[in-house]
Design a binder for these strands. Structure first.
Lengths: 222, 222
DNA sequence: GCAAAAGTGTTACGCGTACACCCATGG
DNA sequence: CCATGGGTGTACGCGTAACACTTTTGC
């Protein structure tokens, strides 16, 4: 036990709630735990902070190691630290909230986790630790930010049609939207650029393809 | 050094940015550091997490110990963890954002801090660690929540006049508001109850005294 | 009666909402 | 020519914003 301190120190981990859209549903990335405690149960991807590593770097590294997912929108969510939240020792978990676009949601299970898979939010398995609570808060954050920011764009590939964008909003807000009103509103924000291309997909009129003018920036609107 | 671990552990602290209204200004509570590093410089009240203590309890305890301030509105702000943010060792700081009403802002310096004092936000001294950045984010949180919640009530005593409440909003939003529109809006939210009392303060018509119907609950509005 | 803050209504404008039909393509 | 999703304009109502005078008190 070579690392010694004058006062007790908690361990620090990061955990990430990654959402994507698959099969017209909002889905969440979970890993099956390969080690105790909670071996065999599903949990958020995450792990221990290295001593010289930034918090956000840790979240991204663990995510990539365990699931192969990288290059995504990520923001800090909340820090959980109930003294009894982990049976091993006192652990503070700095949690993150992330979104991946549907064009790069291939996952591959990594070494630390026996398995990684997308789960529909309404059929989540039982979760390890306090991860159900973390997911709850992440969902609330996503719902709130959908209303006042352009975070929804982070769930789409770099180019998309207005119908695809509308579909994202409909899934996130869980309601159908009027096509004309949606287009009027989204175009009035001046955040979209026409690529000039059209997408022909099936036996109907082709759709104009748009891209976010500033794809990496989540704007605050309203 | 009796506390030993197999892997290195960072230390965890909490720091709190407490705001109040004094002299018609938004002010922030700082303590002068009595120990190295940054001895003699101003910093946010805060300190090390005890191993069996909840994060929010730690923030409240340190605040009370160092400044005597207790019984306030407090919420988690952000967790700061740049590897080099503290010269002693790796320290993760879970920061909190708090508001105290103007009727209980008496402070007394505690044992850990040589001195505690309120500072105007536009004349802040140089700050220890990355505390300037923390304060920046706390101010942004306050400004944002002013617009969509009833957080402003937390800066007033339990009873107040509508003019006093309007003044809080004017200071927080840094603009003057129309008296009739403000009253119409705030009353339409149905969050206020008339006490039936009136406040006579000077040579003019006395003002009706109101209280928040649900004083401890910060409502999300809009 | 004068100074000083409390209290009170009406109008105008813009934004969000509701709503139905034609267009381009593939088969 | 038919099925499918893409694309377009107008009218109404509500909520926000602008705006000035009367009331009550202390001195």
């Amino acid at each position: 036990m070579p690392y010694c301190y004058e006062y007790p120190h908690p361990a620090v981990t990061t955990d990430v709630a990654v959402f994507t859209l698959r099969q017209q549903q909002l889905q969440l990335l979970l890993v099956r735990r390969g080690e105790d405690p909670y071996r065999g149960m599903w949990a958020l991807p995450g792990g221990f902070l290295e001593i010289d590593e930034d918090l956000e770097s840790c979240a991204k590294r663990e995510l990539k190691e365990e699931t192969g997912v990288s290059d995504l929108y990520i923001e800090q969510l909340f820090t959980f630290g109930r003294p009894d939240r982990d049976p091993r020792e006192r652990i503070i978990s700095v949690t993150y909230f992330a979104l991946v676009p549907s064009n790069k949601l291939e996952i591959r299970a990594g070494s630390d986790a026996a398995d990684a898979a997308w789960h529909s939010l309404n059929t989540l398995p039982e979760l390890a630790f306090d991860h159900a609570e973390i997911i709850q808060q992440a969902q609330e954050r996503l719902a709130a930010k959908t209303l006042y920011s352009t975070i929804a764009f982070q769930l789409l590939p770099p180019t998309f049609t207005l119908s695809e964008l509308q579909s994202v909003y409909e899934i996130l807000r869980n309601e159908t939207l009027d096509k004309r009103n949606f287009r009027k509103w989204i175009l009035s924000l001046n955040l979209l650029t026409e690529t000039g291309e059209k997408r022909m997909s099936g036996n109907h009129r082709p759709a104009k393809i748009y891209q976010a003018t500033n794809p990496d920036h989540v704007e605050i609107i309203r």
